[in-house]
Amino acid sequence: MSSAKVYQVLLVEPSPLVGAGLLAILSKLREMHIIDHIADLSEFVERRHAMADVLIIAPSTLSHAELRNVRRYLPLQAPKLVALLSSPMEEAHAAQFDATIGLYDTHEQVAQKMRFVLKGTPQEAIDSNELTERELAVLACVAKGLTNKEISNMLNISINTVTTHRKRISHKLGIYSISGITAYAIMNKIVNITDL
């Protein structure tokens, strides 16, 4: 395909030197677009960073407990996860990543690993932005001004599930504020303006 998909990459690496080095290599790869380079996840901004397809992260920025179940801890649902290693990592931890990049990897090795990671990326995981029925129901509740607890009672799902739905909705629509969600819901006739 000539109009191949460009993958959004977010880099989390505390060392400016290492970060800049990796970015220099990645910037030569045409199929990748660097969204940002942040030092650690405290600098994560949902609106700017959550659309990353690939997250390259230095495990040193995560605690041991977080590393045990890294995908659950991460604030984004990047389909692909790459560890940028400056020291060896426990095997069980490493198994959760799609690839690992080491400080002594060559340009070619980095490029090869990244291409390998992208090759296995299912397109639909990235492209499908349609809201599910459940998400539509949650969306209507949010637009009506219900709290997470009220939504959880009404739809008979846990508060945790409500938050997950809300994150997915925002990510799919590109709308993060409650008033933005409300405007969307009314304009698309998901709720009636008189219901509010």
Binding site: G174, I175, Y176, S177, S179, G180, A183, M187
Partner: peptide, 8 residues
């Protein structure tokens, strides 16, 4: 909200 308005 500016981002939201942009998407809308």
């Amino acid at each position: 909200k500016l981002n939201d308005l942009k998407n809308i």
